[in-house]
Amino acid sequence: MATTLAMFTDTSLCIGCRACQVACKQWNELGAEAPEWTGTYQNHSHFTDETFRLVRFVEQPQPNGNLAWLLMSDVCKHCAQAGCLDACPTGAIYRTEFGTVNINQDVCNGCRYCVSSCPFGVVAFNEDTGTAKKCTFCNDRIHNGLGPACAKACPTDSIQFGARETLVTKAQKRVETLKAMGFKDAQLYGADSNGFLGGLNAFFLLLSKPSTYNLPENPRLPQRNVVVDSLLSIVSAVAVGVGAVFAFRDRGKGDGDA
């Protein structure tokens, strides 16, 4: 397997210019969508089948009554243990040799199970193609030695691209620097490959706790429920089965059979 690639989004450097969002749209030929009023500068409110990079504008009330922004360029996390990939019944969702997660548009049949299996609400259904869509990690670019379009376009290096190991080391140093500067809540999200979902191949440096950015604190693989729930279903099956056997074996006096 080739080196695991990653995107490191350092939210402390983001200026909210949305160059990443636009570059993503242009490179991946994603259509324009009607803007929506979200109450902040953020547009759109969620990932869609045409928006794979999304700059979040999180407003933080300040003691002086003003609002401060926490900016975060959000993207598919390319989880090491990916709910969408495990949910896909056709094999359309696959892991590339670089560790990224991609949807083969020629195989996807639009069952939409991946949409409900993403712990981050990333995967979206496209009505026109009838298939599921999400960030491809610019699969065409990385296979030609280029970084993803969003990382290339970012003017502040808030989005960095490279070998995962190198980026994680870099990110850890950056957290130390920020903490020394007084950003006491600076933390990495998804950098730990022993952490949740086996680590994220698109991981983040956050300036506040994950829930501030509307990220789950401890995202879990949906498929974790299959074994227990199946066993409980079997218990239910045995109970119903025993009841039915009892009913049909009963040699009482006709029991309403007249």
């Binding site: 949906p222 299959v226 279903s233 239910s236």
Partner: peptide
């Protein structure tokens, strides 16, 4: 009769994924 319940409980969505007995209930 039951897998459709487990299908819902093996998602990332609240309520569905919280329901340990969804498959058992669908089976009954």
């Amino acid at each position: 009769a039951s897998y459709t319940g487990v299908l819902l409980s093996a998602t990332a969505l609240p309520f569905w994924s919280d329901a340990r007995l969804m498959g058992a209930l669908f089976l009954a």
